[in-house]
Design a protein around this nucleic acid. Structure first.
Lengths: 201, 201
DNA sequence: CACTATACGGAACTGGGGTTCCGGTTGCGT
DNA sequence: ACGCAACCGGAACCCCAGTTCCGTATAGTG
């Protein structure tokens, strides 16, 4: 029988306590580095920030890409939670708007999120999480449309796209990070609410 | 007296005909490569596309950065021309809107433009051209506002920001290049036109 | 406490891409 | 036609960032 910690649930592969702790430290450090520097954050810096050797980082994540996907998946999951919470808000428009606000804020403070979203064919590893997010977003969109508060020709994908663009334009590393993302979110929200004058292409 | 070609205007530094021709070929090839691949286009590829050696490229542009700036400056100049043309359109809103349309289209088809705009502290070399563009944009914004067609709390910089975000979100290399940039431009334009319900942050 | 599977550290390796260098080539004035 | 700058080509060079490797340290067990 292989050794098994008391807290580990059945089926979880045994892992030494220090390893589990270090894995967490890597994730924390990596999150910070990627948030600040985007995809170009370096493995060595992440290791140093976590107070570990590079080798240790590679023990936990075989590749930079793998580390990235773990982090991205986590972000998608959080966004999905937020979208579901927004569905609980009584007023459809208010829920929708709050969700956008939270997404935009996250995107503006985390270069990884918007850059990861933007890269074509990157992060297929987090496809499941991404799909979940799209599903929750679609529900939110439809509810707001049913309430007559959101342009009827908006799709869930549009929301992802807009939030992504917003993040890339205003996030850390952008030419105008000083100007608040809230400014642009306001404009976009106004555009989304407006009744369709001309149908979208 | 140094040799001087017949067509050269006074004050222009002498340059052999093949050199002038090659410089042009480099610019054309580089434009295409950068438009398709963004900042990560490679010098070797550009040289090959121009049917020249890398050395020749470096003879004309001492650095990748220099080549980039030459191209970016050129784009800024074109946008400035468009903005000035838009000022000639009788209807203020129509001129403004047309300008946005042309900018968005350019940005969506040229990764370089939006990526160059986005990078903080990059392309300070094209500062003059950038300033001119901002000035022309400001005039366009103010005219549309004076006509009461554009939210009064919009600034020229907002336009640059929005076009930049649009380009990065929908341009080649993005996760959803299939969906037309026109769709998102439509939303943004609607948001810009709407009277300010709540003041922008 | 001893033993071993696991984990760690960080120097060394590797591949890719910008840049340099210099021998060969060519436009152009005489 | 000649000669010499100016110009061209592309192999070689260098640096940087991801990845590998292996000797050392340690958690967990009997």
């Amino acid at each position: 029988m292989t050794p098994q910690t008391a807290t580990a649930t059945a089926g979880v592969r045994t892992q030494r306590a220090d390893a589990r702790r270090n894995r967490e430290r890597i994730l924390v450090a990596a999150r910070r580095q990627f948030a600040a520097n985007g995809l170009e954050a370096q493995m060595d810096d992440i290791a140093r920030a976590a107070d570990l050797g590079v080798g240790t980082v590679y023990r936990h994540f075989p590749t930079k890409e793998a580390l990235l996907q773990a982090l991205a998946a986590d972000r998608f999951i959080r966004l999905t939670e937020w979208a579901r919470e927004a569905l609980e808000v009584p007023d459809a428009w208010e829920g929708f708007r709050d969700y956008l606000r939270r997404s935009a804020e996250l995107g503006a403070n985390d270069r990884l999120l918007s850059e990861a979203m933007a890269e074509r064919d990157a992060f297929q590893g987090a496809q499941r999480e991404k799909d979940d997010l799209m599903e929750a977003t679609a529900a939110l969109v439809e509810r707001a449309q049913a309430a007559g508060e959101l342009r009827p020709d908006i799709r869930a994908q549009d929301i992802a796209m807009l939030m992504c663009g917003l993040g890339r334009a205003t996030g850390p590393g952008s030419f105008d990070h000083a100007t608040s993302w809230e400014r642009y979110l306001e404009i976009i929200v106004a555009g989304l609410r407006a009744p369709a004058s001309s149908p979208l292409p």
